[in-house]
Structure formats: C-alpha cells, structure tokens
Computed example of a mutant assay.
Amino acid sequence: MATKSNRGPKAAAENRAALVAAARDVFAEQGVDGPISAVARRAGVGQASLYRHFPSRQELAFAVFEENLVAIERLAADPGASLRDLTDLITLQIEGSAAVITYFAREGDPLMRGFEDRMAAALSPKVDAARSSGTLADATTVADVLMAVGMLAALVARVPAERRHARVEDAWALLMRGLGPA
C-alpha cells in the first residue's frame, strides 16, 4: 500500500488554494457552520494542514471572501467592464457564498468594514458610469448598490442552491426597477 508523501513547504500555496476552494463549496452547501473536517477532506489535506493555514473558521471564511473581492476588483479595473458585468459576477458569488456574506453580517466583524470600503471603491466608477449613461437613476449611490448586494445575500442565504440563481435574478430585476431611471 502506497502512502502519501509529505511534500512539505513547497505544497503550502497549493494546499491553501485547495482549502479555500473546498471551503467555498462546503460553505455553499452546508453554510459557514458546516464541518471543518469536510473542508479538509474535500481539499485532500489533513486537518493539521487546514489549521496551519487557517487557525479559525473565521479566517477561512475571510479567505473565501477575500478571493471573491479580488475577482471583483480585477473586473472593476477593466475599462471595458460595466456595472452589469460587476453585478453579474457579484450575483454568481452571492449564489455560491451567501452563507459567507451573511456570516460576517451576523458577526459584525470590524474587518468587514475594510471589505465594504474595497467593494465601494471597486463599484464607484462603474456606478458613476451607469448614472452617466442613464442605466441608473441620478440619485443612485454606491451605498444603494451595496445595500442591494447585502439584501440579495440575505435573500438567498437559505434558499436551496438549485433555486438561488432564479431568486437572485428576480431580485435584481425588482431592485433595478427601483434603482434604474424613472
């Protein structure tokens, strides 16, 4: 019987990435309170490796959230990307990570403020462009869009995965009637 060889420090970045991807899946399926052991199993690493990278559930959830936010910032920096492109990406993330978003809303963690500031900075130029083009009402602010994102996350957090996309699309349609031009 062959045993797994310990690849040591050279596997650290690969293991961390596998843990974040596994956490995203487990949290989407079972919520942020899902078993940490399931994350380690799905990532194909031992629990000791998981705890070396993420000493707490909160740090693991933050890693998932951070990865999502980096993707949003990357898309927001693309001059060809529109607010709709960003909201589509955020929608996909909400569908898979609503439990993570609501976890931090519940926790009231001060680190969340930094994430909110980064999200606002990413959205701001796209919201300005959407107002200029008439896609959004002149009075719509970045805070309005962030509130819509939070409302969507809360809305889908407890909806079964197979119904999340339809629920989010319906909610965006309703919200855009309120945020869009008169």
Results as ranks from 00 to 15, higher is better:
residue 120 A to G: 13
residue 123 L to F: 07
residue 76 A to Q: 04
residue 137 A to I: 00
residue 75 L to M: 09
residue 95 E to I: 15
residue 107 E to M: 15
residue 110 P to R: 08
residue 152 L to P: 01
residue 170 D to A: 15
residue 83 L to P: 05
residue 105 A to F: 15
residue 159 V to K: 07
residue 110 P to C: 03
residue 136 L to G: 04
residue 95 E to W: 12
residue 128 D to H: 14
residue 132 S to D: 14
residue 129 A to L: 12
residue 109 D to E: 03
residue 104 F to T: 00
residue 144 D to K: 03
residue 139 A to N: 02
residue 131 R to T: 09
residue 80 G to A: 05
residue 164 R to G: 06
residue 130 A to H: 05
residue 142 V to T: 08
residue 139 A to S: 07
residue 95 E to K: 15
residue 128 D to M: 12
residue 98 A to T: 01
residue 130 A to E: 00
residue 98 A to M: 03
residue 80 G to D: 10
residue 117 D to R: 14
residue 159 V to Q: 04
residue 167 R to Q: 10
residue 75 L to T: 05
residue 76 A to S: 06
residue 157 A to Y: 05
residue 88 D to F: 14
residue 116 E to I: 14
residue 110 P to Y: 02
residue 126 K to M: 06
residue 162 E to M: 10
residue 154 A to F: 09
residue 168 V to E: 02
residue 158 R to L: 08
residue 70 V to M: 05
residue 129 A to K: 09
residue 134 G to A: 06
residue 139 A to G: 01
residue 160 P to W: 02
residue 126 K to R: 15
residue 164 R to V: 09
residue 131 R to A: 09
residue 94 I to D: 00
residue 137 A to M: 00
residue 126 K to N: 04
residue 72 I to W: 05
residue 93 Q to Y: 06
residue 150 G to P: 07
residue 125 P to M: 01
residue 159 V to A: 00
residue 153 A to N: 00
residue 114 G to S: 08
residue 135 T to D: 10
residue 110 P to V: 05
residue 141 T to H: 00
residue 167 R to C: 12
residue 149 V to L: 06
residue 140 T to V: 08
residue 89 L to Q: 08
residue 73 E to K: 13
residue 166 A to W: 10
residue 172 W to F: 09
residue 121 A to L: 10
residue 175 L to R: 09
residue 109 D to F: 07
residue 83 L to W: 13
residue 145 V to P: 02
